[in-house]
Computed example of a mutant assay.
Amino acid sequence: MHTMWKGSISFGLVNIPVKLHAATEDKDIKLRTLHKDCHTPLKYEKVCPVCDREIKTEEIVKAYEYTKGKFVVLDEEELENLRKENEEKAVEIIDFVKMEQIDPIYFNRGYYMSPNEGGGKAYSLLRKALEESHKVGIAKIVIRAKEQLAVIRVYENTLVMETIHFPDEVRKAADVPNVPSEDKVTKKELDTAIMLIDQLTAEFDPEKYKDDYRAALMELIESKRTGKETVTAAEREPVSNVTDLMAALQASIDRTKPKKEPAKRKRTSAVKPKKEA
C-alpha cells in the first residue's frame, strides 16, 4: 500500500512514528473528451488572454487574489519552506472525545495508519487505550500543504486518521432555504412513517450496497467494445517542411515585390485651327 505521509503522532510523552495510507479509492469511471469528427482526445491548454498565447509551466506563479484584480504573488520556495516547517512537526493529539459527539457532516477523508520503524509498541498502546476508553483523539496535521483537523480512531484493529472540516468550513444549516420551521403532520401520518421505518430497519452491512450506475456503465462500455462499436483516434498528418519553406519564400517574395505604378496618361497637344485666307 502506497505511503503518502511519514511523521509521528504523540499524546503526552508517548511518540509514535507512523505512515499514512489512503483508506479509500476513487472508483469513478473516467471518460475522455473526443473531437466528434476525428475522435482525437482534446487538449486543454493554459492560455493567457492578454498575451494571447499558451503559457509554459515555468512561466506560471501562484498568487492570492485579495481583491478583484489585485494579487499577492507567492514564490514556490516560500510555499515549500512553509510546507516543510509544518509537515516536519510531530502531530500532537490535542483532545480525547467521544465519537458520538462528532456529527458526520464534519468528516472528510480516511487514512490508515501503520507504525514506522520502532513504533510498533507505542502504536499498540494507543490502539488499546482508545478501545478501552471508547474515545477518539483529535489532532492537527498538514497534508498536501493544507492544515487538517483529524480524528484518530480504531477500525478493525488498525488506527485510522479521519480528516474533518474546521467549523468555519461547514455551512450553517440555518442558511438552507425553504426548510419548514414546524412539523405540520398528523399523528396517523407519523405512525405510518415510523411503521415503514421499522419494517425497513436492518443491521448495517456495507457489502449489500453496490454502485448500480457504475456497474451499468461498465456493462454498456463492455457490450460496445465486444460488439466492435469502437473508434480510433485519427493520426495527425506530418507537415512537410518543404511545403512550409516554399510557402514562406513565396509569401516573402509577394511581400517585397515592388508595386506597379499606374500607367500615366499621355498628354494630347491641342491642334490650333487654321485661319481662313
Rank of each mutant, 00 (worst) to 15 (best):
H2V: 15
W5M: 02
K6M: 04
G7H: 04
F11E: 02
F11L: 12
L13C: 04
I16L: 04
I16A: 04
K19F: 05
L20H: 08
A23Q: 06
T24P: 00
E25F: 12
K27W: 03
D28C: 15
I29N: 10
L31P: 07
L34D: 00
T40W: 00
P49M: 10
D52F: 05
I55L: 01
K56S: 06
E58Q: 07
V61E: 00
A63S: 09
T67V: 12
K68D: 06
F71Y: 15
E77T: 13
E80S: 10
E85A: 11
E87V: 05
A90Y: 01
I94G: 00
I94V: 14
D95F: 02
V97D: 02
V97R: 02
V97E: 03
E100A: 15
Q101T: 15
I102C: 01
P104N: 05
I105L: 04
R109N: 10
Y111S: 01
Y112N: 10
N116R: 09
N116C: 08
L125N: 11
K128C: 00
K128L: 01
A129M: 07
E131K: 14
E132Q: 12
K135Q: 14
V136L: 01
I138Y: 01
I152E: 00
R153S: 12
E156Q: 12
E156I: 10
V160D: 00
E162K: 01
I164M: 02
P167Q: 08
R171Q: 10
P177V: 13
P177I: 13
D183E: 05
K184I: 13
T186V: 08
K188W: 06
T192W: 06
I194V: 15
M195D: 15
T201W: 11
E203Y: 07
E203M: 04
D205A: 13
D205T: 14
D211T: 12
D212M: 11
Y213I: 13
Y213T: 14
A215S: 14
A216W: 03
M218R: 04
G227I: 05
G227W: 00
K228P: 02
E229N: 09
T230Q: 07
V231P: 03
T232N: 10
A233I: 07
E235Q: 12
V239M: 02
T243C: 05
T243R: 08
A247W: 01
L249W: 03
A251Q: 09
A251S: 13
S252L: 12
I253A: 07
K257S: 09
P258W: 02
K260D: 06
E261N: 11
A263Q: 09
K264V: 04
R265E: 03
A270S: 14
A270K: 15
K272W: 08
P273S: 14
K274M: 08
K274E: 11
K275D: 04
K275P: 11
